[in-house]
Design a protein around this nucleic acid. Structure first.
Lengths: 140, 140
DNA sequence: TGATAATAGTTAGCTTGAGTAACTTTATTA
DNA sequence: TAATAAAGTTACTCAAGCTAACTATTATCA
């Protein structure tokens, strides 16, 4: 069997249980994965528009629109207008930052526990590989 | 930022576009990912019960039950009874095998194209890493 | 051996989170 | 300035996961 087949088979089979456990962890804090990834992005990039978030996550605008609305309702996100009046820049509220840090602690513990034994170097190599593969997917 | 955070961020961000492209490719053959992974398993392991398939893919029995029923309706799967009359062993029909090979060709081309430049050795290392991580997730 | 527990699979109903199509409002460009 | 593009929304559909509760069969053990 081709190694490429095995690679993507294992890739899918790792994703599903990971997402399952991630959702359990997040649900203890009243969040879902799609919401969390928005908080993650904004926390690390400062602020973002809907289009920027959708592009980053590889989803369509309506999908992101709903996720953002939920986060605003939850009080974790707020918008500020820009010169371009079509746009809304999103930032974390104080509550949003607080919530992010709370979840971050739990998530770090989980992620580090399942990466036990994997060296920093291996992780960095895997990250670079994932970036390269994603680029080849999106550029086609 | 912790490397573990980056790792899983990139992991999720690779999965989504990959699954999107996979579904486009499969839809050209009238299949979905969940169905394809069943054909894949049975093609490589000969036959399987529902419980075996569900465990392999990390989904619940009702989820797998529906996927299997669709594949039977499509004429790709058939069941044979075993001594244990609770069980149903699933095999590919002739049509199922034909369909598998057809899709396999297209999927190999796609998968190999996006893995261009990644060495066999790197792939094997990544596969082993994914196996280790999945084991740590499921054993907890 | 006979009652109880476990296992294989199904049915019904819910949910997340993705998609497309079509739209409004504002900005850009030809 | 008229046409086009871009940001975001609304309405609707769909795949694919979940739990709860069920039937039928097999295994266990008191």
């Amino acid at each position: 069997m081709k190694t490429s087949q095995k690679f993507f088979d294992h890739f899918i089979r790792l994703y599903r249980p990971f997402e399952g456990r991630l959702n359990v962890l997040l649900s203890e804090h009243g969040l879902y994965r799609a919401q969390w990834t928005v908080l993650y992005y904004i926390r690390n990039y400062g602020s973002a528009t809907l289009v920027e978030l959708a592009a980053y996550q590889g989803v369509e605008k309506p999908t992101m629109s709903r996720t953002i609305h939920r986060l605003v309702e939850l009080g974790y996100l707020e918008t500020t207008p820009t010169q371009d009046r079509r746009e809304k820049k999103m930032q974390l509220t104080a509550l949003g930052k607080e919530q992010y840090e709370k979840v971050r602690v739990a998530l770090d513990a989980f992620e580090e526990s399942i990466l036990e034994g994997v060296s920093e170097e291996e992780l960095e190599e895997a990250i670079q590989m994932m970036i390269d593969i994603r680029n080849r997917i999106t550029e086609k």
